[in-house]
């Protein structure tokens, strides 16, 4: 249990640091308001034009709440790969070898700690704006609980992928483009802007096998359309992908360490 306690502590420090940048924190809320405004306008137009009450099983209220949830997860994601790239370029990473907590684990904990307060802020702001805009009557209490559970797993998965991108700094001068691509995969096959139900069949099938929808689609879907069986399936998928990316991070880190030794940091 000791490493876990240590990671929790690292996460708490990162969270406190987030809260210290009040201005930036406030601006995140403003960004959330702007995005929600854009989505409400867009989807109101869509539903007015189509004239249908539901599209692919979603009412206007459902879809807007779905977007609050995906955006909450998405905008809480830390940019840990930036700090990691800096540590690798400056050679500071060599010092972390001497520490009792491994570098990727430390970074993953920092990433989660950074995400936590952002998550609370984004959820509160988004829910308020959208509730005032289209009404509060979406989702359900079990849906909310399922959302929180799946969102935690989603952020964990996102942290691991973020660390993986960060580790690429050992081989690449610039990892930002890789992050952009990852982000846009969340936008598209991850179902950030459009629930998977709206996809053509072939794309939905592909998306269901990829890890990205477990980060954005899964928690949001659990909230607006709670079904125990589906939640269990999504959670299982998340856990499997967590195991997969956890292993991948460990392997890549081992290769990175060899590179570190060869190059002397």
């Amino acid at each position: 249990m000791k490493p876990l306690r240590r990671c929790l502590f690292i996460g708490r420090i990162a969270a406190r640091q987030q809260l210290a940048y009040r201005g930036e924190f406030l601006m995140r809320a403003v960004a959330m308001v702007i995005f929600m405004g854009i989505f409400m306008a867009l989807w109101s137009t869509v539903y007015t034009v189509s004239g249908n009450a539901t599209e692919s099983g979603y009412t206007l209220r459902d879809i807007v709440w779905y977007l609050v949830m995906t955006e909450t997860v998405m905008m809480s994601s830390s940019r840990i790969f930036l700090d990691m790239g800096e540590a690798v370029r400056s050679g500071a990473v060599a010092y972390t070898l001497a520490r009792p907590v491994s570098f990727p684990l430390f970074q993953a904990a920092t990433s989660l700690g950074t995400s936590a307060p952002r998550f609370a802020l984004n959820l509160a702001t988004g829910a308020l704006v959208v509730g005032l805009g289209v009404g509060f009557g979406a989702g359900s209490l079990p849906g909310l609980l399922a959302f929180l559970l799946l969102a935690i797993l989603a952020l964990l998965l996102d942290a691991l992928i973020g660390v993986l991108i960060g580790l690429l700094a050992f081989w690449m001068e610039e990892t930002q483009p890789v992050f952009w691509i990852y982000q846009k995969l969340l936008f598209t096959v991850g179902g950030l802007f459009l629930p998977l139900e709206f996809f053509p069949d072939w794309l939905r099938t592909i998306s269901r096998w990829l890890p990205f929808h477990f980060i954005t689609y899964a928690p949001a879907r659990a909230f607006v359309a709670f079904a125990p069986g589906e939640v269990a399936r999504l959670a299982l998928g998340q856990v499997l992908y967590l195991a997969f990316f956890g292993t991948l991070v460990a392997l890549v880190w081992r290769a990175a360490q060899r590179r570190l030794v060869v190059q002397g940091g």
Binding site: E174, Q176, P177, V178, I181, T188, L194, L203
Partner: peptide
């Protein structure tokens, strides 16, 4: 890497609109 990364990034944004306008 930055130039082509951004190019790809922008292209993927259009996927959403393509899907939306299909319906």
């Amino acid at each position: 890497l930055q130039v082509f990364g951004m190019l790809l990034n922008d292209l993927m944004l259009l996927v959403f609109w393509t899907l939306l306008f299909q319906r």
